[in-house]
C-alpha cells in the first residue's frame, strides 16, 4: 500500500494481497472438492454446532479463501464433526476432511 505520510485508522478491508494464503493452498491441495463450493449455505443451515453457537462453516471457508486465517482458528474448534454438512452439500464437498485439514494446517502452519 502506498504510504501517503498519514494514517487515520487501521484498514478494515480484507487485504488480499498481504494475507497469508498458505493455509488455503494446503487445504485445497488435500481436499480439492472444496473448490466446488457455491456458497449456498446448506452446510451451515443443517450444522448441529450452528444451532448452539456462531459456528459457520461456509463463512470459515470464505475466510480461508481470503487468507483471513486468524479468525477461523478459534471458530474451527467448535465443530462436532457429525458430518451432516457433507450429507446436504449440493456440490459434494468433502467437508469433514476440510475441517480435519484446516486443523492440520493450523498445527503445521500455525
Amino acid at each position: 500500500m502506498k504510504d501517503f505520510g498519514y494514517t487515520l485508522q487501521p484498514d478494515f478491508s480484507i487485504d488480499f494481497d498481504r494475507n497469508d494464503k498458505r493455509m488455503m493452498l494446503y487445504v485445497v491441495n488435500h481436499e480439492p472438492s472444496l473448490n466446488l463450493c457455491i456458497g449456498c449455505g446448506s452446510c451451515t443451515a443443517t450444522c448441529s454446532t450452528g444451532h448452539f453457537t456462531s459456528f459457520n462453516i461456509r463463512a470459515i471457508h470464505t475466510l480461508l479463501r481470503r487468507g483471513e486465517t486468524h479468525q477461523l482458528k478459534q471458530e474451527i474448534r467448535k465443530c462436532m464433526f457429525c458430518g451432516k454438512c457433507q450429507l446436504v452439500c449440493p456440490r459434494g464437498v468433502n467437508l469433514r476432511n476440510v475441517i480435519l485439514r484446516i486443523n492440520r494446517a493450523i498445527e503445521q502452519i500455525g
Binding site: S48, H51, F52, M80, F81, C82, R96
Partner: peptide, 16 residues
C-alpha cells in the same frame, strides 16, 4: 428434536 449434540462417535472415528 430441536438441537442435536453429536453422540461423539464421528469424532472418535477420526481419532479424537
Amino acid at each position: 428434536e430441536n438441537q442435536t449434540i453429536c453422540c461423539g462417535r464421528p469424532l472418535m472415528i477420526a481419532g479424537k
